[in-house]
Design a binder for these strands. Structure first.
Length: 420
RNA sequence: GUGGGCGUAGCUCAGCUGGAUAGAGUACCUGACUGUGGCUCAGGCUGUCGAGGGUUCAAAUCCCUUCGCCCACCCCA
């Protein structure tokens, strides 16, 4: 039992897992680079207002999940619970709209929410997100969704489902919400306790309640489609056409809603069956009013975030590349240890991955270690080698070994690596 | 915040109707094999039985409290 442990929901990411993070991140950079998104790094801490204004004062995230505290100057600051707010803040602050009409950005990093941890959910978790700011063409939504699909394919993820829906523009949404409130008011008794509360406070959320009784009532609820203005309707059906033509299979899910206030119009979610209760791998949508609300130009925007920890749960072990260990250098006594260390450094200078056993264990011990670590080669240096000026290079796979002069070791190994 | 499950060796777990030095497998170290790994065999190391308190002649085992982890609700990526 150690004296200290990390905070609840804020786990250490140990090397084995960190390697997976690293691999996923480099696939992200590869794919998003190809789509011409550019990376942006925004701070983990922001003035609390950045989040309350954008995510919404009455959302659960802001009300009860955000890590908020006073800094030494008495200013109220918060650890970011998501990425979009900061990015829009940065976009406005640095007048990025003047540099290009469309700005495509991606980010990778930790987010913080004070929730109770469970499968696929931590307090410090990591997201990879993409944003396209500057216009509201459905082609941009399609571009965004294509980047997500390509990313998932690159990671070897299968069996994911893309669900899409539209919430309509701000006016549409208002009308829709009031229609829903009216409908649910007539079925109040059948709804679960939570939904009775939701039906007045945040009526859209009743739509994705998991309670069977509520689901039944939701079936008869007015759909969003009726409430859409012609523009929204056109945009949404155009998006569906574009996706169809691009060969993207999607599932229209009319009860899909988002919990953050800034979403408007198209929303989407990617879910995976193996995830359990928290089955969203990624989610996003349009936020056409946010940039303006944050003090920027009146331009549309769209984006999504992918949950890293959830990717980890979904990606199969064999999808990750095997990490090949380097050569192990084993010295048999103090004198050879010095020479061996010199050789180790020479190999590294030549770009050959290797490590030396400094534990002073026996040759047998060293061999065992190399075997356990699945090393392909070891180099052995002892009294005999020092006397003859040769080192032993042993191939652990074939069992074959040869003596080679100290000076020729690097050349030999480079030659062998070149031939596999 | 609410509910349920679980905390015993580095890891996976047994022991739990109270009983003497707390076990197995695995991992690790050493030797058989004096300078060569995998297989085999032999030996060795590792524990505040999550923590604190209580009941008892006696507690890993029963009771209370507490902390931690997991799953679910809630919410969300």
């Amino acid at each position: 039992m150690s004296k200290y442990s990390s905070l609840r929901g804020m786990p250490d990411i140990l090397p084995e897992e960190a390697a997976k993070f690293e691999w996923i991140e480099s696939r992200a950079r590869e794919v998003f680079g190809m789509f011409e998104f550019r990376e942006i790094r925004v701070p983990y801490l922001e003035s609390t207002e950045v989040f309350t204004r954008s995510i919404g004062e009455n959302t659960d995230i802001v009300e009860k999940e955000m890590y908020t505290f006073l800094d030494r100057g008495g200013k109220q600051i918060s650890l970011r619970p998501e990425g979009t707010a900061s990015i829009v803040r940065a976009y406005v602050e640095h007048n990025l709209s003047n540099k290009a009409d469309i700005v495509k950005l991606f980010y990778i990093g930790p987010m913080f929410r004070g929730e109770r941890p469970q499968k696929g959910r931590q307090r410090q978790f990591h997201q990879i997100g993409c944003e396209i700011i500057g216009a509201s063409s459905p082609y941009l939504d399609a571009d965004l969704i294509m980047s997500l699909k390509t990313f998932f394919e690159k990671l070897g993820i299968k069996d994911f489902t893309l669900n899409i829906n539209t919430l309509g523009c701000a006016e549409d949404r208002k009308k829709f919400a009031s229609d829903l409130s009216e409908y649910f008011a007539g079925h109040l008794n059948g709804l679960c306790e939570n939904c009775q509360r939701r039906s007045t406070r945040n009526v859209l959320r009743v739509l994705d309640c998991k309670n069977p009784a509520c689901k039944e009532i939701v079936k008869g609820a007015p759909g969003v489609a009726k409430n859409l203005c012609p523009d929204c309707l056109d945009n949404y059906s155009l998006l569906k056409h574009i996706l169809h033509d691009a060969g993207v299979t999607y599932n229209e899910k009319t009860d899909l809603v988002r919990g953050l206030d800034y979403y408007t119009g198209t929303v989407f979610e990617v879910s995976h069956p193996s995830l359990g209760a928290q089955d969203a791998l990624a989610a996003g949508g349009r936020y056409d009013n946010l940039v303006h609300e944050m003090g920027g130009p009146d331009v549309g925007a769209t984006g999504y975030a992918v949950g890293m920890e959830r990717l980890l749960l979904v990606i199969k072990e064999e999808n990750y590349p095997a990490v090949k260990p380097g050569i192990l250098i084993i010295a048999l006594d103090e004198k050879s240890h010095k020479e061996a260390f010199k050789l180790t450094n020479k190999l590294r200078e030549a770009g050959i991955k290797c490590d030396m056993d400094h534990s002073g264990r026996s040759l047998k011990g060293g061999m065992r270690k190399a075997d356990k670590e699945k090393r392909e080669k070891v180099i052995i240096i002892g009294e005999n080698e020092l006397a003859s000026g040769m080192v032993v290079v042993k191939n652990m796979v074939t069992g074959e070994q040869k003596s080679v002069g100290f000076g020729e070791t690097v050349d030999l190994l480079i030659g062998e690596n070149a031939h596999g």
